[in-house]
Amino acid sequence: MPSRNDDPVALALQRAAVSIIDAIIDVAASNPVVLIDGRAGAGKTTLSRMVAANWPLAGRPQLIALDSLYPGWDGLDAGVERALHDILRPHARGLLSTWRRWDWELETDAEAHAVTPALGVILEGCGAVNPATARLADVSVWVESPDAARKRRALDRDGDGFRPHWDRWAAQEDRHLERDDPRALATLRVTIP
């Protein structure tokens, strides 16, 4: 994976992606489940895309963002439950399943997406690693990043759409961290400056 430049964030993301890819190879499964958790703006989405683009196994991974499953700004727990019920449990049982994308503008479920058990899954988003999901994962990752950097990246990315909801979302993240302790459950912890 060639380095894009000497930017410390890009370099940290590259190192993290290599570590995750090495962990996937070590699992020696044809359809591993990778969970990537962290707070808003930590770098989960970029990291998951890098891992997907450099997937070390035959076939392409099914990259699913919890942002597509959360049913609105108060839906962190509900989105994770949807992922567990509609994606992770069926995949673990070798069953074809579907999940429905949440339409943030219309505030309702949208189109369905299939998940095949023959391919690996990368599920990324805050809440991805909890006691129930970690049992179904082959690789679980916690992405740590300083609060100020995270907030700047998240608001640069999502702007005014996220700004009025930042504190509300952060409170749900706090509950997830206190209740589920994803840092302790993660098989791999990475830091993005």
Rank of each mutant, 00 (worst) to 15 (best):
D109P: 00
H85L: 09
P2S: 12
R168P: 04
A28R: 11
P117T: 04
D74F: 06
L63H: 14
L57I: 07
G127R: 00
A12K: 06
P61D: 07
D109S: 09
V27T: 14
D103E: 09
Q14T: 12
W73L: 06
S30L: 07
P146G: 12
R101C: 08
H176M: 08
E105R: 13
G125K: 00
D158T: 10
D74S: 14
G75S: 04
N130E: 13
A171N: 06
P61Y: 07
V34P: 00
G127Q: 02
V129I: 14
L69V: 04
G41Y: 01
A52F: 06
E81C: 08
A114R: 11
Q14M: 07
G120W: 00
I64G: 08
V33S: 01
A83S: 12
E111A: 12
W104F: 08
L76I: 13
V139P: 00
P61A: 09
N54S: 14
E173L: 03
T45R: 00
A114C: 04
H85Y: 06
R93K: 13
P164E: 13
P56E: 11
L57F: 10
E144D: 15
P71T: 08
G38S: 07
A10T: 06
V139Y: 02
D77Q: 10
E105D: 13
N31Y: 05
A149N: 02
P56K: 08
C126E: 02
D138G: 15
H91Q: 09
A92G: 15
T46M: 05
F162Y: 15
L123E: 04
G79S: 07
L47A: 07
A128H: 03
V143E: 01
T187Q: 11
W104H: 11
A118Y: 12
R179T: 14
G125C: 03
R179S: 03
I24W: 01
E107W: 00
A29C: 10
D77C: 05
P2I: 08
A16S: 15
R82P: 00
P182H: 05
L88F: 02
H176G: 02
Q62W: 12
A53N: 14
V139R: 02
D147Y: 12
L119V: 03
T191W: 10
W104A: 02
L96R: 14
I64Y: 09
W169S: 05
A148H: 13
D6Q: 11
V80Y: 00
D160I: 12
W166S: 00
R189V: 13
D22H: 09
N130H: 13
S140I: 01
A132F: 08
A52W: 03
Y70E: 09
R163V: 00
G127K: 01
V115S: 12
K151S: 08
T98C: 14
S19D: 13
A16V: 01
L84W: 14
M1R: 10
L136F: 07
E81F: 07
N5E: 10
V143N: 02
W104G: 01
E107I: 00
R89Q: 14
V139D: 03
W73T: 05
A40Q: 11
I122Q: 06
G75H: 02
E107K: 09
H113G: 01
A170D: 15
A29I: 06
